[in-house]
Design a protein around this nucleic acid. Structure first.
Lengths: 350, 350
DNA sequence: TTTTAACACGAAAACGTTTTCGCTAGGCAA
DNA sequence: TTGCCTAGCGAAAACGTTTTCGTGTTAAAA
């Protein structure tokens, strides 16, 4: 087992100084061709690579970005990570991942673990618990220590930083527009509690679409699901709730769901009740997922472009990191980048 | 913007030496109670945290583990990551993620980026291209430099290291057993090319099950899919291939697929051809995915227990890391841990 | 022959820690 | 008074780099 070789060892072997070795490897003109070749040959032979940690310490840059997401077993978030990793790698950065698991405490702990020198900046999406508590001190503290943050998807106005979001309101408005234009007269929405900003915005989009079509929103057609936990029993009870919704409102001929799973389950319930999709009832979900594409019937969705969000977030962060040096004028100016959504029409709509 | 504070700054402010500050913070008895309290109060006020990079350099340990997987937008792999992250965090480690994207080159590059001091050890699943090339020099090199590796799922006998796998052969044998016991007389398999070890093993399980039931394998019922890329067109052509399979072999009354997507698509094709599931034809997939549960009909699957694999892999790695110091007797001894699979019966089988 | 300039290299600082060792001052015993 | 011990603290090394600033040698110019 040969441990990794260091500059010092090379220097000792070749009987030169550490500085000479370092310079030789970086092709400094200070070093004679002889020595340079000798050193480089030796380094190649022993497969020398500079120690990253030492470099990080010296440069006060780790070339690593920290990503904190609420959940990784989730198509949208894993697509975002893929996007982040793609551009991070292309630009010479590594990605270190922390999962908050929708918990405020884990989010804080994770940020503290990483903020002590391990990374140069954060990309994150806020946990539901944090959104509920509305306690953002850990973000503020991190930013005030000079560590840039880019938020995506689940963002919050109170924090001043770069953001990458989709236009939830417009996306859902378009979706509901589509249903209404397709002839639906009674469109229901299956959404989350309001503290989840994306759920709230998507509900607003639903309401706006109705309004523009001169229709009156019926509160009975708005189902706000409490998704504290997406556990098995929760899914079952969700199914029951939806079934009640359908039974009590037999006129429903269109459903907009703020995520993929809700839509899929709603379709399942509809089929159970003998409804034909899309003839009797049409469905649109909000998502980026794999279920929609392979369900039967396949689900029309508002695409979230997770990978694109990740790429954009990473670019924003790295730009900020690389401009820090020059840009010492501190005219902090933050961008909110909106990714366009689009409707992917499949079999669940006419 | 107050930059992170260091020992040196605290020392200067309080007019003591760096060593005194360090000791005071670690509650050394060398330091008088007076000074200790003074330093700790000051540190708390300025929210001092030791710089991780400096610690890593000093201790020659990063408390970070590198994970390299072929793909992250994949239910199984994201579950594994969740498992890894769970125990890593619990044991005080961070997780840094690299994606090989099924490419040999990216796998090598990623490993090199991380192996230069950034991490203490690897957890990885081998990319398809690497399996095809059978070039494992980067693993060997890494291990010979004293950096432990734990492989999971896609492993390879040539490399001597800890491994976490499922019993692919047994799992698929059980699945096919189930189909045969359920009365299927002509069971087809949809699998991958043989260089993917898990595909090969699952095919073997299929064959063994047939054999034990005194049935002769029919090569026409074995569909080996070339999944170079899981692109859109690939899926379409897969659908065509499966349709041909069914049309040419009308007797097929059971299908075992080595992953979830193949099974779902096969079910779709079967339905298109007017077959009733599970009355005319039964399906079992091999997977850990979300599709199976929410498809209609829901798919009976062999569960892979991704999260458990991740947890086990992380435990194995960290154990090795923490025992390195004491265990200098170098009696390298590697474990291969087999996670039990089990059959989750749903609507696609009788 | 002396001065100058280029060339080739080394010493040392710095990044932020922890830790070993040594030093000083004061207290106590002889 | 002398010697010794201990409490309390500081200096310095080490981790592995990069980089600045010497410094000595040699060859060319004066």
């Amino acid at each position: 087992m040969k441990k990794k070789i260091t500059l010092k060892q090379i220097a000792r072997e070749l009987d030169v100084s550490i500085s000479t070795v370092s310079k030789a490897l970086r092709n400094s003109i200070e070093i004679s061709e002889d020595t340079r070749e000798k050193v480089q040959a030796f380094a190649k032979l022993y497969n020398y690579r500079p120690n990253n940690i030492a470099l990080s310490l010296k440069n006060r840059k780790t070339k690593t970005i920290g990503v904190i997401i609420p959940e990784i077993v989730h198509h949208f978030f894993s697509k975002v990570i893929r996007g982040i990793e793609l551009v991070a790698n292309k630009r010479g950065y590594n990605v270190i991942v922390g999962l908050s698991n929708e918990s405020f405490d884990k989010e804080v702990i994770n940020m503290q673990m990483l903020a002590n020198g391990s990374i140069d900046g954060f990309i994150l999406s806020i946990s539901k618990e944090t959104l509920q508590y509305q306690d953002y001190h850990h973000f503020i503290e991190t930013i005030s220590q000079g560590m840039p943050i880019v938020m995506f998807d689940r963002v919050v106005n109170e924090i001043n930083c770069d953001k990458v979001i989709i236009d939830d309101l417009k996306g859902s408005k378009n979706a509901v527009d589509k249903l209404l234009n397709n002839g639906c007269k009674h469109v229901a929405i299956i959404t989350t509690k309001d503290y989840v900003s994306v759920g709230r915005l998507r509900t607003q989009g639903y309401l706006q679409a109705l309004e523009e079509h001169k229709m009156i929103a019926d509160s009975h057609l708005i189902l706000k699901v409490d998704d504290e936990l997406l556990s098995e029993d929760h899914l079952d009870s969700l199914e029951v709730e939806i079934e009640e919704l359908f039974k009590k409102n037999k006129k429903i001929d269109g459903v907009f769901a703020v995520n993929e799973l809700y839509a899929i389950i709603a379709m399942k319930v509809a089929r159970k009740l003998g409804l034909k999709i899309p003839d009797d009832i049409q469905f649109i979900g909000f998502t980026d997922g794999v279920l929609s594409k392979h369900a039967t019937p396949s689900l029309t969705t508002v695409s979230q472009h997770g990978q694109e969000m990740g790429e954009k977030a990473a670019d924003l962060l790295i730009n900020k990191l690389e401009n820090e040096d020059e840009d010492e004028d501190e005219d902090e100016h933050y961008e909110t980048f909106v990714i366009e959504t689009n409707l992917i029409e499949r079999e669940s709509t006419k």
